[in-house]
Nucleic acid binder design. Structure first.
Lengths: 337, 337
DNA sequence: TTCGGCAACTACAACGTTTTCGTAAATAAA
DNA sequence: TTTATTTACGAAAACGTTGTAGTTGCCGAA
């Protein structure tokens, strides 16, 4: 336990606790020589102010929460890195919570954050969130909330996102231009706006190139990998199997590769594949995977920057800001004509 | 700001603050009907106890810190997931800090943790740590420290690790048995015990199979990817280029693939590759990568379990426990004979 | 000489819990 | 009936910091 506190410093220096406290915050009310004495002793005794006493008194914890569906995913890992970088720069601490794509866990976490443990929250919705009451309660407690990537359309809060619809269009168009005539779309939870937008882009592209939208070509995947594998396998074994696949998230692309391997289908000859993904190994896959890569690190930094702007400015309250960071198409072998 | 507190509950119920506090902790000193009244009102008013007041009073924060070199790496990401799972189960909160492989940042983080912000620390050393004074200071403040993967040999603290030396031996032996006659080893920071052990295993295997240990075949890489690429490229362009490579960490294996691609070397025909790695895409690489996979998730869980055991038991103080979780060899195409 | 003003400090309450030490009433033991 | 003991609660003091509201001594101005 850290036992050196203001009282001890004060006694040692023959000063009052308040003077020591003020000296350490470099207040103008304290004379330079006194400040120096205080600084010196504090350093010598390795004084570390108790953050909890301070938080209790100031009603601010200099701590934020990052709530994400999973971490073993390059996108979220990079986002965390971006957030942590900005946070440490600003002297903030970062609590991490994983929802495991489970709305009940997300709600429990949000509820526990109502205690005032954190000054603000950066969140990416889990796939099964349809109801955002637990997040509204956070806002009602005046705890700022910033969304990134998987944002809530319904809520008024800053959002850091990518151009999902446009990217969905570009991905699908890319497949069509590579010669695909039956493009399938693998998506996750339809309660997520990113999924809807990516699918919207997919449908826009199909219509634009006079290809019909077939519901059978849109596969709704979930959080169970084995089940996803089964669904994809079924798709590829069907009468009219697709000759192109647009995967909404990277883990689905991985499953596509596995299924193709099992069924002896060759990418890109038999089926072309493109996916939203931040895999570092995309270019080393067999075949290398064409991706739509999101600027994950920058999205994390941006979300954190917006949050800290809110936390630090008291007067100007911007009700909502949206930042759109563009994703990049990286063409590789999996979509070769 | 969360404004419903014990005082308000007490006033509403015509009870004292202490009674309400005790009732909420289900103390035997409080009668069942009173407890019920308190519970009901607390729920109705959505009372959330202020964690900072509680931490201040109890000298326990129910918060731990996880300090790791990086997060955009499947090993560490999975370890975090393991830690977070156990922590939430136990009602603890997880602060995350990234050292970015920089010992100065690691020291700054450790120093800031002396404030008593956390009850315990789970840490994996950064590549440049040779000096562990900052960690000793943590222990002197009675903040338990548990190492995982990149442990400190010199310090007395629980350690969760893999059988690195044995795994290094197995990896090298596997290359030799696949026909390699010149096996190179790519390693990171020699101040890390895991690197030393993996290298030791490598050397053991070479000697065991009557192959000399050539210093030129051991490449010391760092945290600069471009520089690592250059070093590996140089290795492969040398007079006596290796016909087998054992990479100590996954990012080096990725660089090997890139270099081979640039130089037109075919894996496994010209050079066979094996690496410590937790890449989910290892089996989908071109060619699929033979790996030594560590049980990252379980290591995280184990480290957290040990830490919480320390935090909760006051009387029995085990000075040191080591847990060794075995890595698994996963043979794939990159080491085909 | 007195008063205002200033520089440099101190005293004390507050933040919301937890815990120690009481205490009143009710029950049991003597 | 008196004395212990138990039950169920309350008052108040922590925990370590910060903010408000003084206080003291000193200087210059009237």
């Amino acid at each position: 336990m850290n036992s050196v506190n203001l009282k001890q410093l004060a006694r040692e220096l023959n000063l009052s606790v308040s003077t020591v406290s003020r000296a350490l915050r470099d207040s103008w009310e304290i004379s330079t020589p006194t400040k120096q004495r205080v600084f010196d002793l504090a350093k010598k005794m390795n004084f570390q102010p108790n953050p909890y006493a301070s938080s209790l008194r100031k009603h601010r914890s200099r701590t934020i929460a990052v709530v994400i569906p999973e971490v073993a995913n390059n996108f979220f890992a990079l986002a965390i890195k971006g957030i942590e970088t900005v946070a440490r720069e600003k002297g903030y601490h970062v609590l991490i919570y994983l929802t495991n794509e489970d709305v009940a866990e997300e709600a429990a976490i949000a509820s526990s954050l109502q205690s005032g443990r954190v000054d603000g929250v950066i969140l990416s919705l889990c796939g099964s969130s349809q109801d955002t009451r637990h997040l509204l309660e956070l806002q009602q407690r005046n705890i700022p909330l910033v969304f990134f990537d998987r944002v809530s359309e319904g809520m008024t809060a800053p959002k850091v996102m990518t151009n999902d619809q446009e990217s969905g269009f570009i991905a699908t168009e890319h497949l069509i231009q590579a010669g695909c005539r039956r493009v399938a779309h693998l998506t996750i939870s339809m309660s997520l706006s990113i999924s809807n937008k990516r699918q919207q882009g997919y449908e826009d592209a199909l219509r634009r190139y006079d290809q019909g939208v077939e519901t059978g070509m849109i596969i709704h995947c979930g959080k169970d990998d084995a089940e996803n594998y089964r669904l994809i396998r079924e798709l590829f074994m069907s009468e009219n199997r697709p000759d192109g696949v647009f995967a909404s998230v990277e883990k689905l692309a991985v499953q596509v590769y596995h299924v193709c391997r099992e069924l002896g289908l060759q990418i890109p000859r038999d089926v072309k594949v493109i996916s939203f993904s931040n895999l570092v190994t995309a270019s080393l896959l067999n075949p290398s995977l064409t991706t739509i890569a999101q600027p994950a690190y920058d999205m994390g930094k941006e979300a954190a920057t917006i949050l800290f702007r809110r936390l630090e400015k008291k007067y100007i309250v911007v009700p909502e800001d949206r930042v759109m960071l563009p994703a990049r198409l990286e063409v590789r072998d999996s979509t070769m004509a």
